[in-house]
Structure formats: structure tokens, C-alpha cells
Amino acid sequence: MGEVKINNFKPKIVGYLCNWCTYAAADLAGASRLDIKPSINVIRVMCSSRIDQNLILTTFFGGADGILIAGCHPGDCHYDKGNYYARRRYALLKKVLETLKLDPERLQLSWISAAEGKRYATVVNEFTERIRKLGPNPINNNSYF
């Protein structure tokens, strides 16, 4: 029975993408007509550094099965160092997730440049698959509270 449940499970993934690189990569993936899982719902921010801990936790508490934060490659941030800060906050968040008994794998940070349409598709599809295997967000299932 459990099997079936997992197979029907369509993960809900929120993708916080930086405007300058990854959002452009997502567009390029579209222009190249790549197949991408409808699991992802993109929310555009100007820079990956905009993402604060609260937002991520609220997103998980709201029921996201996975969250992808993606921005410019290190050194490429449109605002110079934003993505380094994002990386630091991400590392901290991973720890916080552990204490919440949420598998840290549910949160992913990727650097995807504007030319990497293909990689964007691969990252999203692989992440979806991983989340599918992890199953639904336990908080969502009320098993946490």
C-alpha cells in the first residue's frame, strides 16, 4: 500500500530563483522546450541573498515537500557577494531542519547560470525525484505536531 501512495505522490516544490541567472536559465530551458516536472513552482527574487530563514521555514510549514534555492555561480552574483551570504544561511538552515526532524535533503541550493538551461532542467527533475522518494513533508501530514 505504501508503495502505491509514493507512486501517486506529486511533490510540491517551491523554487526561489534569482532574477539574473537561474530565472534566465529557467527561461532558456523553456525556449529549448525541455521537459520539466510540473512539481516546481517558481518564485522570482532579485538575488538568492533575499531568502531569509523565516521564509524557508514558513514555506516548509506551509507544506512544501522540497525547496530549491538557486542563484548565480559563486563570484557571478549581480550584487557581488549575495550568493555567498545565501550559502552561509543555507548551511545554517540545514542544521535547523535537522532539529525540526525534517530531512535536510528537502532543501537544496544550486548555482545555475543563465546559459545552463539544460542543467536547470536536470536539477529540477532530479530534485523532484529525490523528494518523491523521501515522500510527503511530514509537517504537512500533521505527524510532526
Binding site: 539574473w20 546559459a115 545552463e116
Partner: peptide, 17 residues
């Protein structure tokens, strides 16, 4: 170019805007 020396910045990201 995929990336520009020396910081290996993605050219598309730099130039497309």
C-alpha cells in the same frame, strides 16, 4: 564564451541583461 577569465563568470549572465 561559456565563462570569462579570470573570475569565470558566465558570459551569458553578464551580457544578456
Amino acid at each position: 564564451n561559456e565563462e570569462c577569465f579570470p573570475n569565470l563568470e558566465c558570459s551569458t549572465c553578464m551580457v544578456a541583461p
